[in-house]
Computed example of a mutant assay.
Amino acid sequence: MDGRDGMRAADADRAAVADRLRVALDEGRLDLHEYDERLQRAYAARTYAELEPLLSDLPPVTPAQRSTLAPAAPQSVGVGDQATAVAEGVTARWLAEVWFPYVKVIAVVVTIWAVTSLLSQDLLYFWPAWVAGPWGAVLVVRTVTGLSAGEPRRQAIERERKRQRKQAKRERQAELRAGEADERDDPPAAG
Rank of each mutant, 00 (worst) to 15 (best):
R4N: 11
D5C: 11
G6W: 08
R8V: 15
D13A: 11
R14I: 15
R14T: 12
A16I: 14
D19R: 15
L25Q: 14
E27M: 13
R29C: 08
D36M: 11
Q40V: 13
Y48L: 14
A49G: 12
L55P: 04
S56C: 01
D57H: 13
P60N: 03
V61A: 06
V61T: 02
V61L: 15
T68I: 08
A72I: 11
P74V: 11
V77G: 01
A87M: 02
E88L: 11
R93E: 04
R93D: 05
E97Y: 07
W99R: 04
V108E: 00
V108H: 01
V108T: 13
V109H: 06
V110N: 12
Q121S: 07
L123T: 15
F126H: 08
P128Y: 08
V131W: 04
A137W: 10
V140P: 00
G150F: 09
G150L: 13
R153V: 12
A156D: 09
A156W: 08
A156R: 11
E158W: 05
K162E: 13
R163A: 13
K169V: 05
R170I: 06
E171V: 13
A174Y: 03
D182G: 06
D182R: 15
E183K: 12
E183M: 11
D186Q: 11
A189F: 14
A189H: 09
